[in-house]
Design a binder for these strands. Structure first.
Length: 498
RNA sequence: GGGCCUGUAACUCAGUGGUAGAGUAUCUGCCUUUUAAGCAGAGAGUCGAUGGUUCAAAUCCAUCCAGGCUCACCA
């Protein structure tokens, strides 16, 4: 009682009593004949036949009254009441029942019946302890009112929910649905791509050079080689090597790591799907993205619409496609199509947009887009044709040396996908990476580094290729109606506790 | 990093300068069809941490720690 340690002490005393009775509180084996949902599904028949069942689960409520008692047992399929009567289980077994704590795993051998108050229950003939609880589980009580679950003392502290996710899942069962949907989405992405003939691969997480995105990496050390390694920030450069290798359709789904700020939409490690398709371009990638997410919507929500934060999002094809320059013009009346640095800079200053020292016209245009357009893109929108300056791995748009064939997909004001017609000209690619390296020298810690092996691979020849990256965590947020990435990652990154 | 907010018992929360509270959980007793079981009683706290103001601090001030929202940053 007193502090938690005393409660734990009491539980350990009970444990000792159980041991003294010659009972193993942590037996190696259990024997279950029915899961709880099976009992529910066959209620009428089981009650009629007084069906003998053995259920296993966690004891999560107890109401004892003298020589009888009720409890609730949960497994992953449901929850059911147990009824324990001293006359039925016998003196010795009733003593064991009295030694049970909430949180214990138990095995109940008994028969199905209905209580006087009409509650479908298992009348215990024998109770077996499967695993003794030694730490008090926060108590959540619930009652169904008008078909809705009303809870008292809900386990709701956000920090605790994330730090002790096992308790969150145990005490807030609906959280599990988020992760079931997450698994479904990942399966659907995989099925979709496998069916289209994409080969799933694994490329290194530990890399001697990192690239494929603008981000600061995590650095680690290999003891035997006495070398620094980077945790990958993207899979791009390895997957393109596989396109060089003649694998025409390839994808990888896995964790990327970026050593950057954390907020509602960023976790240091996150799940990304990247795919590359030879003899394709960014238009093909748009079609694929559209179709993939449309199919996910049909699978997950059963329709081409979802409700996100009380607004309807429609995935009905085709989605809006608009160029970045046009969207800026629409929102602000400002025409940036000439890439006139002084003019654009003046407009940025007028609108109090911060100008980084090394930013050129392209970077400023992107800033304008982010400030004026991005938050307004609620329905799925492909924003196409990005400034070359901010896209070192994408191919130039024919007829406009300032632009590249690139798009990002925006839904509900957030970025969901990034894709381009991949740059396969090794000479141009070298120039672009060297320009990035210069930015690094000027202090841009997120700029790309020159990857000589990647450039060498391109020199062997890479076919025209379309590439696409999709943030899986954000997709899950969208389809589970969450606004924080921490809600869709089981164990989100938290500051260590002191 | 800035602004705003939060941190009190295992859980959910009251408590704005004067002896730390409630419900649930826990423990004891009663109770043979309960279900947020009930009734009676008991125990339970470094009031996030440190320093300061004061006769007196959970309460006021400062710093720090952790978290949330938001802005910035991170395309």
């Amino acid at each position: 009682m007193q502090p938690e340690s005393q409660v734990i002490g009491l539980k350990k005393q009970k444990l000792q009593k159980i041991i003294d009775l010659g009972i193993n509180p942590f037996p190696n084996r259990s024997k279950r004949t029915h899961k709880i949902n099976i009992l529910r599904e066959n209620q009428d028949e089981f009650v009629k036949q007084k069906q003998k069942v053995t259920i296993c689960g966690r004891l999560d409520a107890m109401r004892r009254q003298g020589r009888i008692g009720f409890g609730n047992v949960s497994d992953d399929s449901g929850r059911i009441q147990i009824f324990v009567k001293k006359d039925v289980v016998g003196e010795e077994n009733y003593e064991i029942f009295k030694l049970l704590d909430l949180g214990d795993f138990v095995q109940i051998e008994g028969e199905c019946f209905v209580t006087q108050k009409g509650e479908y229950s298992v009348k215990a003939h024998k109770i077996t302890i499967l695993s003794k609880n030694l730490r008090p589980i926060p108590t959540v009580k619930e009652k169904i009112v008008d078909g809705k679950i009303k809870r008292w003392d809900e386990f709701s502290d956000i920090e605790l929910r994330y730090r002790k996710r096992y308790l969150d899942l145990l005490l807030n069962p609906e959280i599990k649905k988020t992760f079931e949907i997450r698994a479904k989405i990942i399966n659907e992405v995989r099925n979709y791509l496998d069916n289209k003939g994409f080969l799933e691969v694994d490329t290194p997480v530990l890399q001697t050079l990192y690239g494929g995105a603008n981000a600061r990496p995590f650095i680690t050390h290999h003891n035997t080689l006495d070398t620094s390694f980077y945790l990958r920030i993207a899979t791009e450069l390895y997957l393109k090597r596989l396109i060089v290798a003649g694998i025409e359709k390839v994808y990888e789904m896995g964790k990327d790591f970026r050593n950057e700020g954390m907020d509602r939409t960023h976790n240091p490690e996150f799940t990304m799907m990247e795919l590359y398709q030879a003899f394709a371009d960014y238009f093909d990638m748009m079609d694929l993205t559209e179709d993939l997410i449309y199919e996910i919507s049909k699978k997950i929500s059963g329709s081409e619409n979802i409700i996100y934060q009380e607004q309807e999002i429609s995935f009905k094809k085709p989605w809006k496609r608009a160029s970045m320059i046009d969207l800026i013009l629409e929102e602000t009346g400002f025409d940036a199509s000439d890439f006139d640095y002084e003019k654009i800079k003046k407009f940025c200053k007028k609108n109090e947009i911060e100008i980084e020292p090394n930013a050129g016209a392209g970077k400023l245009i992107e800033e304008l887009f982010e400030v004026f357009v991005e938050p307004k893109l609620f329905q799925p929108t492909f924003v196409i044709d990005y400034p070359k300056e901010v896209s070192p791995l994408a191919k130039t748009k024919p007829g406009n040396p300032n632009l590249v064939e690139r798009f990002e997909l925006f839904i509900a004001g957030n970025e969901f996908a990034n894709a381009f017609t991949e740059l396969n000209d090794p000479i141009d690619q070298r120039k672009r990476l060297e320009a990035q390296a210069k930015l690094r020298e000027l202090g841009d810690l997120e700029a790309n580094v020159v990857d000589e092996d990647f450039l060498e691979a391109l020199e062997y020849g890479m076919p025209p290729t379309g590439g696409l990256g999709v943030g899986i965590d954000r997709l899950v947020m969208l389809f589970t109606n969450n606004t924080s990435i921490k809600e869709v990652i089981l164990f989100p990154q938290m500051r260590p506790e002191i």
